[in-house]
């Protein structure tokens, strides 16, 4: 625990975080979430009519996510547009959030979430999910709970929370993005890239849970601040 990380953080210390709600005027709900140098902005549109029609579900509404990285978000220019990675992240984000939103009031409709990473330094999918949850709440979508996400990882046999790009690129580093619900503390996203033992995973998840609790407080504060008296 005493050993310092590349940027001088403790093992269970996140980078500094910032959350802001209501940043996009024309969206129904929007939010920005920054963790260290990673900045995600999310915009929610809807509920609105769903096209193509064959996707419509007369029982319930649909949650549709779109994750995208800006071409200038990474040191080497990223080719714009969807790719294999962004399609996967869009899917896991949608799955991480659809368990808390309740769209049964909106049959045949869709709620669109657009997540744009404007600056990336590892942990983008987690920042995206956290921002998207804020934007959903801001859009007035019925939700049973809030969601926040953080990545934990193993470097040289040690568990650290919120890896940055330098740590993530260490050889044999394991990266585990986790999303927790706020009140019920249930996992809605769990991915793993690398090798890990069961004991280490348990420790990592415990650490992630504690960090998500902190993130949840920040989300709550950001949502309240949006409606403080000017």
């Amino acid at each position: 625990m005493t050993e310092k990380r590349v940027d001088g953080r403790k093992a269970d210390e996140m980078r500094d975080v910032e959350a802001k709600v209501g940043i996009i005027k024309r969206a129904d709900g929007s939010a920005m979430f920054r963790v260290g140098e990673t900045i995600a902005i999310a915009a929610v549109y809807g509920p609105r009519e769903l096209h193509p029609r064959y996707l419509q579900n007369p029982e319930t509404g649909l949650l549709r996510c779109n994750y995208d990285m800006a071409s200038f978000s990474v040191p080497e220019r990223k080719k714009p547009g969807p790719n294999r990675r962004s399609v996967e992240i869009s899917l896991v984000t949608q799955q991480a959030l659809s368990s808390v939103v309740d769209l049964s009031q909106f049959p045949n409709a869709v709620v669109d979430i657009f997540i744009e990473i404007i600056q990336a330094n590892a942990g983008t999918r987690c920042a995206g999910i956290t921002a998207a949850a804020l934007a959903l709440a801001h859009a007035g979508i019925p939700m049973k709970d809030m969601v926040s996400a953080i990545s934990v990882g193993k470097i040289n046999g040690k568990i650290y929370v919120d890896l940055n790009k330098d740590e993530e690129d260490v050889e044999d580093a394991t990266d585990i993005p986790v999303a927790f619900t706020g009140r019920t503390k249930k996992i809605t996203l769990l991915q793993l890239d690398g090798n890990i033992t069961k004991k280490e995973l348990d420790e990592a998840l415990k650490l992630a849970g504690e960090s998500c609790e902190k993130l949840n407080k920040i989300q709550e504060k950001a949502l309240r601040e949006c409606y403080k008296n000017e």
């Binding site: 808390v100 019925p142 939700m143 809030m146 619900t181 009140r183 989300q219 709550e220 949502l223």
Partner: peptide, 8 residues
């Protein structure tokens, strides 16, 4: 009071 989704 202002409340957020999932608040008791």
């Amino acid at each position: 009071e202002i409340v957020i989704p999932g608040q008791e």
